[in-house]
Amino acid sequence: MTSAYTSRPQGSRLADLLAAHAQLLSIAGFFLIMVVIFSIASPVFLSTGNILNLVRQIAPILIVAVAMTFVITTGGIDLSVGSVVALINASAAIVLQMGLPWPIAVIGLLLLGAAIGAIQGWFIAYQGIQAFIVTLAGLSALRGIALLMTEGFSIPISTDLGFVAIGREWLLGVPVPTWIAFLIVAAGFLTFWGTRFGRYVTAIGANQEAARRSGISTKQILLWVYVLTGLASALAGIIIAARLGSGSSNAAVGFELEVIAAVVLGGTSLMGGRGSIAGTVLGALTIGVIGNGLILSHVSPFFTQIVTGSIILLAVWLNARVFSRLASGARRKT
């Protein structure tokens, strides 16, 4: 049987739009469900005080997760972020105790974080060693350095210093760490979505050789994404030191896993080529809400890790199996 020619209908725009953002919608839905459950379980969950507390608490995760989104979108991983946080955290307390003016200390520590990222990035981009291996080595060695420097003790930071304002001060009714996180998220979003750098990060994750053949300096871009995670981890380490008023080599244990979980929950593909800063923000918020909500619901703190782990698996499973199948028949790579 033959049919008379008609031009092929384009299909619904809305369906295309939903398909393109299925992952984002699913994590947004998941986040809202968590909020509803915990607001029923605990009356104080939705109070302004608790919400501000929550967004202050997750600021370090949010900041590092934004940078980690770039790394994972290239198809890489940075396992060393927790150890960089600890190293910077401990170093902050040490240099402040030595009497270094705090603005100089902050700049120096940020540069140190960036330099650590650059060294790891050089091994990954220019020496072709797998990111997993390089940053696993970083995870071990950098916390080791922090332990060596502090000999395992927690070092106090004088609250007379302006430094602690970074973690404790409020601005226009919102904690400073939240403002910092907000600025990082905005900058990360614009860079990822709108600039050549963001475009090339995606291109490298999708097909590194194709990106190179298109004249992109893939090695340089790869090195830079690890500089970003180093820098973001340093910032997180400074914020944590300022909030707690102390520096410790035991800060941020397991931090890298929370950060990676936030990024993956947000729909960024571990295979590279597909990432979303908006998704990462929702992922970080979801992890923050689960931790905070379970405590407010008087669940044993030991349960938090079990529940967090299960929910991550459930959410990623829903994402990978259910939503993406609904979303697209023709997509080659999920």
């Binding site: 600039t195 475009r199 291109a203 999708a206 097909n207 990106a211």
Partner: peptide
């Protein structure tokens, strides 16, 4: 040598994107 997760226009212009200030 195409990037599967980038749109058609993005692939055509890969490596020489027209810019508007610092944005694509």
């Amino acid at each position: 040598s195409l990037c599967d997760t980038i749109d058609v226009a993005g692939n055509l212009y890969l490596g020489r994107e027209p810019m508007n200030g610092i944005f694509l």
